[in-house]
Design a protein around this nucleic acid. Structure first.
Lengths: 225, 225
DNA sequence: CAGGATCCGCCGCGATACTG
DNA sequence: CAGTATCGCGGCGGATCCTG
């Protein structure tokens, strides 16, 4: 018993897949990238997963050192340093998968948090700031902290600590700006984005996000002759 | 019939996993990254796969546009541009998996080609050259073409076209140099590496490969507080 | 009610045998 | 050489049941 399926190949890629290629594992990592979550949070934010699989995955991921369970109550699951180091893998998967993201298909579930995570691969670098996004959606609000470092963007779902800029508005306004390429000044139908804080940072944030590389060749893609 | 298992989430990561998360798929991509292969080549170079699964994977991957089958004889499978665009995903998986590559475990199969591919993530950039590596191993020789561009290293298993440098030696000598950090001048037990061509390029190649980031924090890793 | 555990049916997977 | 056919098992999905 308890012998897991593995490739038995002396290769980093195969070793990695031994640990993360089971179904749901990388999506759990994705969701935990926004911050620690409770079991029930993951159940609702991972549409389609079943309780037995979530429990099993969290157990093996904890055993492998990818996530740590902080005893509660309530118990929370968080990425360890090892699990967080999967971020480049997840980001590159998202970059590649963006080619197929023209439209939501019927039956697709949508989560604003996933869109926030996709900003990681669009950040062009060169900014240093802490920004908070407040997405208003039917009756609620979700707050994301964006920490821009020189070559990396951190995104967490939580209140930002001492943000230099707060951008607030309905979800549709953020979508229009970030994913449909509308200038923030022309978001009439979707409602407007309001900002509070340093206008210089606001300008820089708009510049810092590259285009959504829908189907286009990715910036780092290999040219294949 | 023919409805594949998918996550039904409007998220690039989930979309990508819908296409490549089945078992063996990314390892087929890995092996094809070295160049086109025949069915029987893949069978021998993917230890553990069974013929029914290889046939099934190649069929769905061809249907998804990841690989193209060139009618033979002999028929060959090659990555399409879409499939080749998975390279960053595979490379980042290998970077993460390198943390677990201290030693081959018993039962592990080893393939020098996988080691050559791992050089992609270790290339520090800044070089422009075409180099050929000739790995001598029990009774045979395998030749790899390394094309160094400013920010990217191409690796194919084939004779290099007009290489400025040829490095030849037993497999163990390459392993000692590239994976055990021995200076090429001190490879006495493993046999020596001989070079032919531009000595300036040879110097630059030795500098161009960063350390094998065994367990260490990767250069681009996210620092997690 | 949060946080799981248990049971069952199905299909993806692995092993082997067989075919053009 | 390049696959197809068949079969058993275990991972997975769906549902229900337990326990603080």
């Amino acid at each position: 018993m308890n012998k897991r399926r593995c490739y038995d190949q002396f290769c980093g890629i195969a070793r990695a897949l031994d640990l993360v290629s089971e179904r749901w594992t990388l999506l759990i990592v994705r969701n935990l990238m926004l911050g620690p979550r409770r079991y029930s949070d993951l159940m609702t934010e991972l549409p389609g997963i079943t309780t037995n699989l979530l429990a099993a995955r969290l157990k093996t991921m904890e055993g492998d050192g990818l996530v740590a369970r902080t005893d509660g109550p309530p118990a929370r699951y968080a990425l360890t340093a090892l699990g967080a180091a999967l971020e480049p893998v997840v980001v590159e998967l998202g970059r590649w998968g963006a080619k197929f993201m023209d439209q939501p298909r019927r039956g697709d579930t949508v989560n604003p948090g996933w869109g926030m995570l996709s900003l990681k691969r669009r950040y062009r670098g060169g900014l240093r700031a802490v920004v908070e996004f407040r997405l208003q959606l039917n009756g609620g609000e979700r707050r994301f902290e964006l920490v821009f470092e020189n070559h990396h963007l951190h995104v967490k779902e939580r209140e930002a600590v001492r943000p230099q800029l707060v951008v607030a508005g309905p979800l549709e306004a953020f979508q229009g700006w970030l994913f449909k390429g509308l200038p923030p000044g022309e978001l009439h139908r979707a409602g407007k984005l309001t900002t509070e804080g340093d206008p210089v940072v606001w300008e820089a944030v708009q510049v810092a996000f590259g285009p959504n590389d829908w189907k286009g060749a990715s910036a780092r893609a290999t040219a294949s002759p």
